[in-house]
């Protein structure tokens, strides 16, 4: 257990020591979204589903922060350790491959939740938004962070170059999240060609709606659908990451 905790600590210290590159930029960019689209343009939109637009978009922005940071941390940490060769430090230790995988994954979960919490604090200061069901919201956020940290582990093992992580971030995660109801609900884009089908077919839309319902108070059906999708995604991604670690994919030759 000591070995596992040491590796978890390494993963957390890694992003905390470099907070100016790992924590500050994503937090600031999401806060800018909140200010410009929420406080600024949002004031012209009035209420959306019974709450001011800036509060409506807050849960989506928190998820955006969690998703990207939970993904990026394990992806870059794993690839960096492979690239420089220091992954061997873990592989020749008595840590099991499952412990190595979970420690790296937890580093991502920690960074996702830290940035998510900072965005929540900023949103509360700017808009006074409150969390309707704090424990459920935390559990939901945790599940999302685990799922996307699992994707980060897979990408960190799969990629053969630094650009691989950036490519998945830009071409997969960004469209998935941006078209997944962060800035609007499915009802708001009914009849809008292209956007409505892309949003309706995007599973992240239902994950966002579920988190919004937990945070702002909303239909239980949304929460349940979102949570089931998140847990299923998490089970698949964490399971796949563990399987790749077990076979030594891009770790052992």
């Amino acid at each position: 257990m000591m070995g596992f905790l040491t590796l978890v600590k390494r993963e957390v210290v890694r992003f905390l020591k470099d907070a100016i590159d790992t924590i500050a930029p994503p937090t600031i960019s999401v806060i800018l979204f909140l200010l410009i689209f929420g406080v600024g343009l949002g004031s012209r939109l009035g209420d959306v589903h019974g709450v001011p637009y800036v509060q409506f978009m807050t849960p989506g922005l928190i998820l955006l922060a969690i998703v990207r940071n939970a993904f990026l941390n394990p992806a870059y940490s794993l690839f960096q350790s492979r690239w420089y060769g220091n992954i061997a430090d873990f592989l020749v230790s008595p840590l099991s491959v499952e412990q190595i995988a979970l420690a790296i994954l937890l580093g991502g979960v920690a960074r996702g939740l830290v940035v998510g919490a900072l965005v929540l604090v900023a949103a509360w200061l700017l808009t006074g938004v409150a969390v309707a069901q704090p424990m459920w919201a935390l559990g939901y956020a945790l599940a999302v962070a685990v799922a996307f940290a699992g994707i980060g582990c897979i990408v960190g093992l799969w990629t053969r170059g630094w650009e691989g992580v950036g490519a998945i971030d830009t071409f997969v995660l960004d469209p998935l999240v941006m078209l997944g109801g962060v800035f609007y609900s499915l009802e708001m884009v009914r009849g809008v060609s292209l956007i409505e089908p892309l949003t309706a077919l995007n599973p992240f839309t239902y994950i966002t709606e579920g988190f919004r319902a937990v945070m702002l108070g909303g239909a239980e059906a949304h929460v349940l659908t979102g949570l089931v999708l998140t847990l299923a995604l998490g089970a698949i991604c964490v399971g796949a990451a563990l399987a790749l670690f077990r076979v030594g994919y891009h770790l052992k030759i």
Binding site: G3, G85, P94
Partner: peptide, 28 residues
């Protein structure tokens, strides 16, 4: 094992920390 290539986890750890973390991975 001491590898031929000088593999050291030095991106954010100093010399002493490298050894302390390595000890930790071995459960010390």
């Amino acid at each position: 094992i001491a590898f031929q290539e000088l593999i050291l986890d030095g991106s954010f750890l100093n010399v002493r920390e490298i050894l302390i973390y390595q000890a930790g991975y071995f459960g010390i």
